Simulated assay, not measured.
Amino acid sequence: MFERFTGDSRTAVTMAQEEARMLRHGEVDTGHLMLGLLTSGPDGPVAGGPGARALRSLGLTSEVLRPLVGREIDGLDPDALAAIGIDLDAVRQATEASFGPGALEGRTGPVKSGHLKFTSEAKKTLELSLRVAIKNKQRFICDGHILLALLMLPDSTATRALRAAQTDLDALKEAAEREIAAIAA
């Protein structure tokens, strides 16, 4: 399957691992894949493919989404805590003021170098990206296919972060499809 990945999709997967390390997470999740799409964009090491362009066309950047992915994956649900009167941001600030940055993440040492394990949802996303490409009769898997696959998982970390950023998911899907069609033509 990976032989079908274009340069932008390979870079996005590699950058997803870097995002996971930077956020001090021990494995790569769908949120990291989404951030990897953006990190491989104009601020990143390559120009970015259709997925990165679709995200940026809706004003989404890694700076906007990274805090949402970071808070989502650390296992604390800010909405659920708010429902019982706990302000997660205030708790996080107080904890980090006392114990240092990342204290709620439970990691005190560096995240391991080398390849990080992918969650089952992240693996499913990569498999779905192949299905999206095949459905579109395309012999390659670009970062736009990865984005469309991410959008197929409504309860993933990535889609929850997109919803938290008040993203119109249908508009994002349409933008990704347009960008893919433009490179396939």
Rank of each mutant, 00 (worst) to 15 (best):
A54W: 10
A171C: 06
L151W: 07
L23S: 09
T61F: 04
R71V: 11
L153V: 02
D79C: 04
G59K: 06
C142N: 12
D155Q: 13
Q138A: 13
T167H: 07
A54D: 06
V111G: 07
G144D: 02
A122K: 05
V91M: 00
G26E: 08
M1D: 00
R178I: 02
R56I: 10
R53G: 11
A149P: 04
K123D: 04
S62Y: 04
R10K: 15
M152W: 05
D74A: 11
V69N: 04
A20F: 06
V64P: 00
R160D: 02
E127D: 08
A97S: 14
M34S: 03
T11D: 11
A149N: 05
V13L: 13
E127F: 08
R53V: 14
L104A: 11
A47C: 06
G114D: 05
E105W: 13
D170V: 11
D74R: 14
K173R: 15
T61Q: 02
H25E: 08
G109V: 07
T6R: 13
L148D: 07
A97W: 02
I141M: 09
L126H: 06
G36T: 03
L55R: 07
A171T: 02
K137E: 10
L68D: 02
E179T: 08
G85E: 01
M152G: 11
L35I: 04
A12Y: 09
V28D: 05
T14F: 13
A158L: 00
T39I: 00
G49V: 09
A161E: 03
G114S: 11
L38V: 05
L172V: 05
L81A: 02
S9G: 08
T167I: 04
D89E: 14
D143Y: 11
T6Q: 12
N136F: 12
R56S: 14
V69D: 02
A82W: 00
L58G: 07
M152R: 12
D168Q: 08
L116M: 11
E72H: 15
D79Y: 13
C142T: 12
V132A: 10
T95D: 01
P50T: 10
A181E: 15
R160I: 08
L38S: 10
L33N: 06
P67T: 01
R92K: 13
L151S: 06
I134N: 05
I84L: 09
L162S: 04
V13Y: 12
C142I: 00
E27R: 08
L104R: 05
E27M: 09
T157P: 02
D170N: 14
R53S: 15
G85S: 01
A97C: 03
T11F: 07
D8N: 15
I134Q: 09
G85Q: 01
A103L: 11
R131W: 00
G41S: 03
V28C: 07
E72A: 14
L162R: 03
A182T: 09
D43Q: 13
S156E: 01
A90I: 01
D168M: 11
G49N: 12
P67A: 03
I183T: 13
L169H: 04
D87L: 00
R178Y: 06
G49M: 12
D87K: 02
P50E: 10
D155I: 00
L88Q: 12
K117T: 07
